[in-house]
Design a protein around this nucleic acid. Sequence first.
DNA 1: TTGAAAATATTGAATATTCAACAATTGAAG
DNA 2: CTTCAATTGTTGAATATTCAATATTTTCAA
Lengths: 144, 144
Amino acid sequence: MAKPNTPITEHLAYLLAQANREINRQLELRLSKEGVPVEQWRILKVLSDGNGHSMGELADAVLLNHPTLTKMIDRMVSDTLVYRVQDPNDRRKVLMFISDRGKVLSKKLNSLAVDQEEHILESYGDKSTSELKRLLESLIDSSN
Amino acid sequence: MAKPNTPITEHLAYLLAQANREINRQLELRLSKEGVPVEQWRILKVLSDGNGHSMGELADAVLLNHPTLTKMIDRMVSDTLVYRVQDPNDRRKVLMFISDRGKVLSKKLNSLAVDQEEHILESYGDKSTSELKRLLESLIDSSN
DNA sequence: TTGAAAATATTGAATATTCAACAATTGAAG
DNA sequence: CTTCAATTGTTGAATATTCAATATTTTCAA
């Protein structure tokens, strides 16, 4: 009467980690053509609305915690992809903006990312993809 | 005629990262009751079949790369949760085994993890959960 | 208005991860 | 058999992340 404990591969937490790892790896591979980590793509994408975004807001949006974001932004400022402006309405805040160079890079990265999405659509299917997205959104919602 | 680029929140890669982060955070919170990181739960769970698993096999199973696993196993050996045995059939390999202490801990961790799964089932729904799992498995399959 | 608490971002030290090189063993071709 | 390439795991240095502490500014209650 051995107890056949639930295998790890049946845990939602594990399946999510596994799928995330794989998809992220693929995306990483594409973006490496431009020598850019996934997080920087996210940052540029969020900033490419042209508006200023505070560090806190950005950290939430790109799934990084504050100190990690600060250091990554330091690098991106060195690369003149983004720049800091003190928020005039709340001087505790820093508003981040994308530079022209950042916009150019962002476009290239977007097309690489879109490439990947299309590749997934092909091998995984249109129906499954949109259904999966829907379920993920709803899971995220239900976790707040 | 501004181009409304796909928002990042619509990319599968982003949704997966977000969902994974959130679910992982919740699991982490539970496991912290025993002071154990998620990766160690995975390791113990895989080893709790009682069989020896090589480092390479284990690294794949628990989603860690080799050097990271080696160092985490070093810690777990210090804590006498697992132990190394040289594979007699292939002396390049090391077989990892779970200790009695590891088994005891593993059971506690499992019940914490099951707690979480039940919590998700409640707030997210039985139907959605199993459907999400099915889709994730199929996505992972299609990525090989 | 003042002073304490909260919010925001950064820093430096501690910790963890990754990359490249290495050592040991096995496999396999000649 | 012997040698060379491939496999497996570990190590140390370089890099990245995290935690706790800090500085600054704002908020708000007294």
